[in-house]
Design a protein around this nucleic acid. Structure first.
Length: 768
RNA sequence: UGGCCCGUCGUCUAAUGGCAGGACACCGGUCUUUGGAACCGGCGGUGGUGGUUCGAAUCCACCCGGGCCAACCA
């Protein structure tokens, strides 16, 4: 289970949202959905479908009138449905919330948390500062409530021109998170909105509209991609200060889907369409869902890809081979087989009578030979094969046709090439071959081994087709934003006009999948293919074959992992300037002073550095030390290692509750051997969760510890008996397995065993 | 010279302090009327250094590496 689903299960368990699971997919209708969106769609709609009563809203995030169009909304709905998801009645538009949003803005103004800034765009930018430099306050920041109110009302009334005023949150211009430096909430834009027409001269910004839209829809889990991490702070701030109802939606970020050699950004895709680098949003080379669909990629394959990729927070880049795998896996069992010759070469069978004609049957799908599952292939004296399947000078290992060699014409005969005919330019124009009548139906007599099998068509019976061969659109894994055109693969679209397909394909309707045997999966173009003139798009080749592999190794882009690359990888992360000490990272004089002091008290460097950075910890440390002076290092260690750990993982733990004297008593008890370290942890958790003194905490806890050798030995023997192979592995040197045995003892004793003793005994038993 | 986030086989991802596992890719084999499919096998990983712990991929610190943030875009 991924971390988001785990989080939702936890919320379900704690009842945080009363058992509700509401997600949303919120695209801005300013372009077409692409494969990157597919991940978000699968995640949001997938999660909703997994929970009874779960919902996923489709919300068009249409707050920018300049870029949005109804046409894009329709395309998005079509693409989501095609992917296999349904929003039911939950179709929403952020623009429908403009009135409520406006009222929320008024709430902030009334609280003195928002103001109208009349600075110019440049001034605002300048005063924002930079990532390393704090911003400065706007001169309009301290306008009165009444003035802000009046100005904002007039902004809405359309009294002001574009850019003359904005509404901003009043937070902190020196905030380390740039997003929090008085973010813009509203801007004036006298533009026609595709839905609201001319109703509004002001439009809310993303940060303002998004969290409140989520809240208005009672969304529980607002999932977005990693680049919005910084925005989570304003998301929470706005919900809190507009008094939005609890329980509030929670934003969680996950890694976007990034594919090698593929552009997944509407910002990059749009210019490609507008500048004519491609034929449109649905160009089969495009990563848009419309493009993929037109190419023949199936929704099942895209969903499988998303499952394979998973959901995590680590920045990742997915190998396109994963999509190809999912595609072939899907198409393999649903695409009927057919013969297609891309580059015809004439073959005349010298020992086959001119007048003779046969019809062979071949399975539509492999392993399916029944009458209804077969197709008919006419055969005659003159055939066409693919030029690629003949080599006058075959490389070693070549299994197809060459002078004097034999090859199997699938489902027909084994033939031998006797003669090669060329034109005056030396180009091969015809092959003279002989059939072996004993191999009729393509079945070779026992003991006869013919390695190669090729596809073919009977001349005169084949029907013409246009075949479009697509390759990756870019030559580099990560095309640069600024110069997409330069990264373009000039051979990404190869149109073969003289191809031929078997006669059974006459009248193939648009949008039909085939596997052209030995060539790949193809899809009749949904737009351009018609009865009299078939057009097929190559969806994906068959898995890299002998020749495919050789080609791929030399083709653009691929960079095999060289030993040098490996070495570089291994070197990654090594410290260049030699080992540096943690204390060298101390920045302020005060920290260095405190550090020196702690060091003199005997506190280890690692612990001291941590304490010095946190005044809260440091003060607890000093107070605890006052009642256990000789335990300075131990106290520091407990504070830094154990208390931090609990504070990070246990919601009930609060540093403020910890009484320093209780900590001191605890540490002393462990130091003197009165209590084991493990029990000490249990106690410290209690002190953090409930407070109180050391003895008091102990008395409320079951601190029983089994250190009786006979009891432990008995448990251990049981464990060894249950894991004989692991015991043997341990004896033969797998020392890491000790953890398994000790862990089992801990489990079986409900955590009461003394692990130190158990570990000692386990070692003795297994080694002795 | 800021804040936040992230580092597990080549790639993606599990392991919630106790056996580092799966998928894709790659390599090899069996089979085969697709150099396909299927089946079997193999290769290969916790960025580094310390610390805490009986025990660390997991907790702490530092270092190294990567990403995001300075639109009146989302």
């Amino acid at each position: 289970m991924d971390f988001i689903r785990a989080r939702i299960s936890r919320d379900l368990k704690t009842g945080k949202y009363g058992g509700r699971v509401v997600t949303r997919f919120p695209p801005e209708p300013n372009g077409f959905l692409h494969i990157g969106h597919a991940k978000a769609i699968c995640l949001n709609f997938g999660i909703a479908a997994e929970h009874p009563g779960g919902r996923c809203h489709l919300r068009l995030d249409d707050t920018n009138p300049d870029t949005e169009k109804a046409e894009y909304v329709e395309a998005m709905k079509r693409d989501i449905r095609w992917l296999g998801f349904n929003w039911g009645e939950h179709l929403y538009h952020a623009s429908d919330y403009f009135e409520e949003l406006y009222r929320y803005a008024m709430v902030l103004i009334d609280k003195g948390l928002a103001y109208v800034d009349s600075s110019s765009e440049e001034e605002i930018r300048e005063r924002r500062g930079s990532v390393t430099r704090p911003g400065v306050n706007s001169p309009f920041r301290d306008r009165s409530r009444d003035e802000n109110r009046e100005l904002f009302v007039r902004m809405r009334a359309g009294d002001f021109p574009d850019g003359s005023h904005v509404l901003r949150a009043r937070i902190d211009m020196a905030h380390p998170n740039m997003v929090m430096r008085d973010p813009l909430l509203y801007r004036i834009r006298h533009a026609r909105h595709y839905r609201q027409r001319d109703t509004w001269p002001i439009y809310p910004m993303y940060d303002f509209a998004h969290c409140l839209s989520d809240s208005l829809e009672r969304v529980t889990h607002s999932l977005c991609t990693l680049e919005f991490e910084n925005n989570r702070e304003i998301y929470d701030w706005l919900l809190e200060h507009t008094d939005s109802p609890a329980p509030r939606p929670e934003q969680t970020e996950f890694a976007p889907l990034i594919l090698d050699y593929v552009v997944t950004s509407k910002r990059k895709l749009r210019p490609m369409v507008e500048e004519g680098l491609v034929h449109g949003w649905d160009d089969p080379r495009m990563s848009t869902l419309a493009g993929l669909r037109r190419r023949g990629v199936t929704p099942e394959a895209i969903r499988t890809l998303c499952e394979m990729v998973g959901v995590a927070r680590a920045h990742s880049r997915v190998d396109i081979a994963k999509l190809e795998f999912a595609l072939r896996d899907d198409l393999n069992h649903k695409a009927p087989r057919a013969f297609c010759v891309l580059d015809p070469l004439r073959v005349v069978l010298t020992n086959y009578p001119e007048a003779r004609e046969e019809v062979f049957r071949a399975p539509r799908l492999p392993g399916n030979a029944g009458e209804s599952g077969t197709r008919e292939l006419p055969f005659g004296r003159t055939l066409l094969i693919d030029r690629e399947d003949f080599r006058e000078d075959p490389p070693t290992g070549f299994r197809r046709l060459s002078p004097g060699a034999e090859v199997r014409l699938k489902y027909a005969y084994v033939i031998r090439c006797d003669k090669v005919l060329k034109d005056t330019a030396g180009r091969v124009v015809e092959l003279r071959c002989a059939i072996d009548p004993d191999t009729r139906g393509g079945v070779a007599p026992v003991g006869r081994r013919v390695r190669g099998a090729i596809h073919w068509l009977k001349a005169g019976s084949a029907i013409p087709a246009e075949v479009r061969l697509f390759d990756r659109m870019f030559n580099v894994p990560e095309p640069p934003d600024d110069d997409l055109a330069a990264a373009l693969n000039p051979d990404s679209e190869r149109i073969v006009t003289g191809a031929l397909v078997e006669p059974g394909l006459v009248g193939t309707p648009p949008a039909t999948h085939y596997q052209f045997e030995r060539l790949g999966y193809f899809f009749s173009d949904p737009e351009d293919s018609r009865d009299g003139s078939l057009v097929f798009n190559r969806t994906v080749t068959l898995r890299a074959s002998w020749e495919g592999r050789a080609q791929r190794a030399t083709s653009a882009g691929e960079e095999p992992v060289s030993p040098a690359n490996r070495a570089a990888h291994a070197e990654r992360g090594k410290t260049r300037a030699g080992p540096s000490s943690p204390s060298a990272s101390l920045r302020t004089a005060k920290q260095r002073l405190d550090f020196g002091h702690l060091a003199r008290l005997g506190v280890s460097e690692a612990a001291a550095v941590s304490l010095v950075r946190s005044p809260r910890y440091l003060s607890v440390f000093h107070l605890a030390r006052a009642s256990y002076a000789e335990g300075a290092d131990s106290i520091a260690s407990w504070l830094v290692n154990e208390v931090t750990r609990l504070l990070g993982s246990d919601d009930r733990a609060e540093l403020e509750r910890l009484e320093p004297a209780a900590l001191a008593d605890l540490v002393r008890a462990v130091d003197t051997g009165r209590m084991s370290h493990r029990r000490g942890r249990t106690v410290v958790a209690e002190l953090l969760a409930r407070g109180g003194g050391f003895e008091e905490a102990c008395s409320g806890l079951d601190l029983e510890e089994i250190d009786d050798e006979a009891v432990l030995r008995a448990i251990l023997e049981e464990v060894v008996l249950d894991y004989p192979d692991k015991a043997a592995a341990y004896r033969s040197g797998e020392r890491r397995l000790l953890g398994l045995f000790v862990g089992e003892v801990m489990k079986r004793s409900q955590g009461k065993a003394d692990p130190r003793e158990a570990s000692r005994l386990a070692r003795a038993m297994l080694e002795g």
